Computed example of a mutant assay.
Amino acid sequence: MIKNLAFLCLIFVLISSCGFRSRCNNAAGHYKIGNSYTINGVTYHPKHCNHYEEIGVASWYGMEDHGTLTANGEVFDRNSISAAHKTLPLPCFVLVTNLENGRKLVVKVNDRGPFVKGRIIDLSEKAAKILGFHKSGLAKAKVQYLRKMSERLVQKAPHYKKQYEKEMQKRHPKQNSAESRGYVAFFENAQTAKSAASKLRNQGIKNVRLLFKNDRYCVKVSYK
């Protein structure tokens, strides 16, 4: 009887494990910035960014959310190296430094949170263990956005890249026919195009648009 019960428990564990791996394989996730949203009376504004660095309290989440979908459609695994942030693009990479012991870890952000005042990032259980604050639950930490690594992640994954381009088009819509005339410069790299557009705006030039057209990024200065 005991042997039979042990065998059934083993079968249950194996089936559960296979089911979890299947969900992970089927949920590749998607690139997302997202619209503004309000939690507990506080409004957050997700946005594309070139630079982000903040010091605050880091926390972690694990068993209660294990196997659920993250904000960008991936399956949360408490044993993976991942995190939740309130406004950064999803997915992206950040460098987290535990300022209490000096430990550092590069983490993939694929979820939203934490929604507690003063907390700036919610790490997976494994990430918290590596950074050395699993038992205490909280730690003073520094979070730094890794732009180049994040952009490589998006550019190398076709489904991420396509969704990123749609986000760019949504935030920089095409002009109507009355504004369609102007000077255009094409770029193969998104960051180079954004840098060129930023320089033009800093020089006081108006009607500068960043578009994606014919598989290339273009900076357009329009006139009526």
Results as ranks from 00 to 15, higher is better:
3 K>T: 10
6 A>C: 13
7 F>M: 11
7 F>D: 10
8 L>A: 15
9 C>Y: 10
10 L>C: 13
11 I>N: 12
12 F>K: 06
13 V>M: 14
14 L>T: 08
17 S>W: 13
19 G>Y: 14
35 N>T: 10
36 S>L: 04
36 S>T: 07
38 T>F: 05
38 T>R: 08
41 G>Y: 08
41 G>M: 10
42 V>A: 06
42 V>M: 07
43 T>L: 04
44 Y>G: 02
45 H>V: 05
45 H>N: 09
46 P>D: 01
47 K>P: 01
49 C>H: 00
51 H>T: 01
51 H>C: 00
52 Y>V: 01
52 Y>T: 00
53 E>R: 02
53 E>D: 02
54 E>P: 00
54 E>D: 00
55 I>H: 04
56 G>W: 05
59 S>I: 02
62 G>V: 02
63 M>N: 09
64 E>G: 03
65 D>N: 10
65 D>W: 08
66 H>R: 11
69 L>K: 14
72 N>K: 03
72 N>R: 05
72 N>E: 06
73 G>Y: 03
75 V>G: 10
76 F>I: 05
78 R>V: 07
80 S>T: 09
81 I>W: 07
83 A>E: 04
83 A>V: 06
84 A>D: 02
85 H>V: 01
85 H>M: 00
86 K>H: 00
86 K>Y: 00
87 T>V: 05
89 P>C: 03
91 P>E: 04
96 V>W: 03
96 V>A: 04
97 T>N: 07
98 N>G: 06
99 L>W: 06
101 N>M: 07
103 R>T: 06
104 K>C: 09
107 V>T: 05
108 K>E: 11
109 V>N: 01
114 P>Q: 03
115 F>T: 07
117 K>Y: 10
118 G>L: 07
118 G>R: 07
119 R>V: 05
121 I>H: 01
123 L>E: 03
124 S>H: 08
125 E>V: 04
129 K>L: 07
129 K>F: 06
130 I>V: 14
131 L>N: 03
132 G>I: 04
132 G>H: 04
133 F>T: 07
136 S>V: 11
136 S>H: 11
136 S>R: 13
139 A>P: 11
140 K>P: 03
141 A>V: 12
143 V>Q: 01
144 Q>A: 08
144 Q>T: 11
145 Y>C: 01
147 R>M: 05
147 R>Y: 13
147 R>H: 10
147 R>D: 04
149 M>A: 11
152 R>T: 14
153 L>K: 02
155 Q>V: 08
157 A>S: 15
158 P>A: 11
158 P>N: 09
159 H>D: 04
161 K>F: 14
161 K>G: 06
164 Y>G: 02
165 E>R: 11
166 K>W: 12
166 K>V: 12
167 E>F: 07
168 M>I: 13
177 S>F: 13
178 A>P: 02
178 A>S: 07
181 R>Y: 08
184 V>A: 14
186 F>N: 15
187 F>A: 13
188 E>N: 15
188 E>P: 09
190 A>G: 08
190 A>I: 05
193 A>F: 11
194 K>D: 07
194 K>F: 08
195 S>G: 09
197 A>V: 12
199 K>F: 12
199 K>I: 14
202 N>G: 13
202 N>Q: 15
204 G>I: 10
205 I>W: 09
206 K>E: 12
207 N>D: 12
209 R>W: 12
209 R>G: 09
211 L>A: 02
213 K>L: 12
217 Y>F: 14
218 C>H: 11
220 K>W: 11
222 S>H: 10
224 K>Q: 10
